[in-house]
Amino acid sequence: MWQAVASVVGFLVHQVSAHGGALNYTVGETWYPGYDPYGPEDQVTAPWTVQRKWVTNEPIFEANNISLACNTPGTPAVTSIPINAGENITAVYGSWVHTVGPMVAWLADCGGDCRDFDTTNADWFKIGEKGLLWGTIVDGMWFQRQFGVWDGTPSSWTEQIPASLRPGNYLVRHEIISLHSANKPQWYPECAHLEVKGTGTKFPGKEFMAKIPGVYSMNQPEINLDIYDPAVGERTTYTIPGPPVWTG
């Protein structure tokens, strides 16, 4: 049933403006429909909706914007994606055209039913991040550039749920930070509900945790930068801000 629903919803993507976001998710061969900001309003109560509501593919520009957690308005999803610790989850984007900046995947423990979870109380930890692969900041190969597909097919971003993670209900947050506009970073976050299963017993310590908003600021040189300034753009390294990735 999931596959049948997703085969219809999963490819109803919109080639609109120069932005985008995660529209669907896959675990193994199973598709899970997310929320389409340009689709019907009844998605928010549809029994298959696993993603928190977001109403536009326009970016968030403020590091302290409350919507940075799960986009605007971040209304909780109806159901969750079942996944075993150690399995991969893939976020599927209808299109992506930006090329510079990091991509970070986060989890937050809902401490119960994610439908009742307020993200202002969330402690987030990274499970994956992808940045500059080679070359310079301005002209090099970022994963974000590699991730964008120009032939009309969806773009896919895969990360692993740590195998030792304790079972529970979690939010997964996929975040793209685009840095192509000088001193004007753009955030594109989406969140989905997960039901993590397995026999793991581990959970990250405080050194891996961050608040969102809170983890980023315009005082960070990795966030507030001008890639067209040769002193910046010709660098061959970029440090993704925030805590280290927790792998279990």
Rank of each mutant, 00 (worst) to 15 (best):
residue 57 N to V: 15
residue 58 E to V: 02
residue 59 P to F: 08
residue 60 I to M: 14
residue 60 I to A: 11
residue 60 I to T: 11
residue 64 N to G: 03
residue 64 N to Y: 04
residue 66 I to P: 13
residue 66 I to H: 11
residue 68 L to E: 10
residue 68 L to G: 10
residue 69 A to V: 02
residue 70 C to G: 12
residue 70 C to E: 10
residue 70 C to P: 12
residue 73 P to D: 14
residue 73 P to K: 06
residue 75 T to A: 05
residue 76 P to V: 11
residue 76 P to W: 06
residue 77 A to D: 04
residue 78 V to M: 01
residue 79 T to N: 03
residue 79 T to P: 08
residue 81 I to L: 02
residue 82 P to D: 01
residue 82 P to R: 01
residue 82 P to L: 00
residue 84 N to G: 01
residue 85 A to Q: 10
residue 85 A to V: 04
residue 86 G to C: 08
residue 90 T to E: 13
residue 91 A to T: 08
residue 92 V to W: 12
residue 92 V to M: 14
residue 93 Y to F: 15
residue 93 Y to Q: 11
residue 93 Y to V: 00
residue 94 G to K: 12
residue 95 S to C: 01
residue 96 W to A: 06
residue 96 W to Y: 08
residue 98 H to A: 05
residue 101 G to S: 08
residue 101 G to H: 09
residue 102 P to V: 10
residue 102 P to K: 10
residue 103 M to T: 15
residue 104 V to P: 06
residue 104 V to M: 14
residue 106 W to L: 13
residue 106 W to T: 03
residue 107 L to N: 12
residue 108 A to M: 08
residue 109 D to K: 10
residue 113 D to E: 06
residue 116 D to K: 13
residue 117 F to Q: 04
residue 117 F to N: 03
residue 117 F to V: 05
residue 118 D to Y: 09
residue 119 T to R: 11
residue 120 T to A: 14
residue 122 A to G: 09
residue 122 A to F: 03
residue 123 D to G: 10
residue 126 K to A: 08
residue 129 E to Q: 15
residue 130 K to S: 12
residue 130 K to P: 02
residue 130 K to E: 14
residue 130 K to I: 08
residue 132 L to I: 07
residue 133 L to D: 10
residue 136 T to W: 05
residue 136 T to L: 09
residue 137 I to N: 07
residue 137 I to E: 10
residue 137 I to A: 05
residue 138 V to E: 11
residue 139 D to S: 03
residue 139 D to W: 00
residue 139 D to H: 02
residue 140 G to K: 11
residue 141 M to V: 00
residue 144 Q to T: 14
residue 144 Q to V: 11
residue 145 R to E: 04
residue 146 Q to T: 01
residue 147 F to A: 07
residue 147 F to C: 07
residue 148 G to K: 10
residue 149 V to I: 07
residue 151 D to N: 07
residue 151 D to R: 02
residue 152 G to D: 00
residue 152 G to I: 01
residue 153 T to W: 09
residue 154 P to T: 06
residue 154 P to W: 13
residue 157 W to H: 15
residue 158 T to L: 10
residue 158 T to Y: 02
residue 159 E to M: 11
residue 160 Q to P: 10
residue 161 I to T: 08
residue 161 I to C: 12
residue 162 P to T: 12
residue 167 P to C: 03
residue 167 P to H: 04
residue 171 L to N: 06
residue 171 L to R: 07
residue 172 V to T: 08
residue 173 R to P: 04
residue 175 E to I: 04
residue 175 E to Y: 02
residue 178 S to F: 14
residue 178 S to I: 02
residue 179 L to F: 05
residue 184 K to T: 13
residue 186 Q to A: 04
residue 189 P to A: 05
residue 190 E to M: 04
residue 191 C to Q: 06
residue 193 H to F: 01
residue 194 L to M: 06
residue 194 L to N: 08
residue 195 E to G: 00
residue 195 E to W: 00
residue 197 K to M: 01
